[in-house]
């Protein structure tokens, strides 16, 4: 996609729901997703799986968790670019591990600050950003798109990381207002990702009546509507992972998933039960 986006985006924005948000994420899109501790729109992930999305290119902010594992297990994903993929204390992401062994998903290995730097380059509208560290790691050999250059202003070398411009950021947050401003609080990796992405789609616990930009206390943690293309109200939309300040993750459910999804049959049973839930 180039800016402005030319690929078809259904005009869902008048009254979005998780279903219409999922419909606005085209097959093959690059999709930025938060790790399990940030803001995850599992309710929209479920709709992506229901609509049988294909060929998605996931970008971890900067790592991936349950959202990615469910999408991978359901066959929706072609590639992942991430610093890590895991289910937090529940460990290895089982559907990803199976897909990896079968060669069904391509992994673009990264490290947290390289993803932040790539997004920051996109945020600034430039081609790349230099980054300290990393040189000396074998990771550099796995990334032919990265460059090493002499520092023009100091001695030593810098790693040059190309801009990362996701087609879409999908996230979940506590609040939005009627004007489409999205409050993410201290989860500012979502702010960075919204600035860097061509579109931002979100679900929220609740839409409030007051203007989030009118009070600095709220405005400081708010992604302005300028960057946001669709918001759907979806209470408990992050479950079974948690949402900071609202509800904790459902640890029993996550461990049950980690156990069940070790086999394809177990994954499918879990998925079918989850798809039948809501």
């Amino acid at each position: 996609m180039s800016w402005p986006p030319s690929s078809p985006c259904p005009e869902v924005l008048s009254a979005p729901t998780p279903i219409t948000l999922a419909a606005a994420i085209p097959d093959g899109a690059s999709l930025a997703l938060a790790p399990d501790y940030s803001g995850c729109s599992l309710v929209t992930i479920r709709e992506l799986i229901r609509r049988r999305a294909r060929g998605l290119r996931l970008i971890g902010l900067p790592q991936l968790g349950l959202q990615a594992d469910l999408l991978i297990g359901a066959g929706c994903v072609a590639t992942i670019e991430t610093a890590a993929i895991c289910l937090g204390e529940a460990g290895i992401a089982p559907a990803f591990e199976r897909a990896r062994r079968a060669g069904e998903v391509q992994i673009i290995e990264s490290t947290c600050p390289a993803i932040h730097a790539g997004l920051t380059a996109a945020e600034k509208g430039i081609s790349h950003l230099p980054l300290a560290g990393v040189i000396g790691s074998d990771l550099v050999d796995l990334r032919p798109d990265w460059r090493i250059a002499d520092d023009p202003f100091a001695t030593g070398q810098l790693l040059l990381v190309p801009a990362i411009r996701p087609d879409i950021l999908l996230c979940h947050a506590a609040l939005a207002d009627n004007a489409g401003n999205l409050w993410i609080g201290v989860r500012r990796e979502l702010m960075l990702a919204a600035h860097a992405s061509r579109r931002t789609l979100a679900t929220v616990e609740e839409v409030v009546d007051h203007d989030l930009l009118a009070d600095d206390v709220w405005a400081a943690g708010t992604i302005p509507a300028l960057y946001v293309d669709g918001i759907a109200e979806a209470p408990n939309g992050a479950a079974p992972v948690g949402l900071r300040g609202r509800y904790p993750s459902d640890r029993a459910r996550l461990h049950a998933y980690a156990e069940a999804a070790r086999t394809a049959e177990g994954f499918n049973r879990f998925l079918n039960a989850w798809l039948g839930d809501g």
Partner: peptide, 15 residues
Amino acid sequence: RRFLGNFGAPYLASL
């Protein structure tokens, strides 16, 4: 066998 991933280690270890 794949572990979880590199996280921030390639960067933090040198800085």
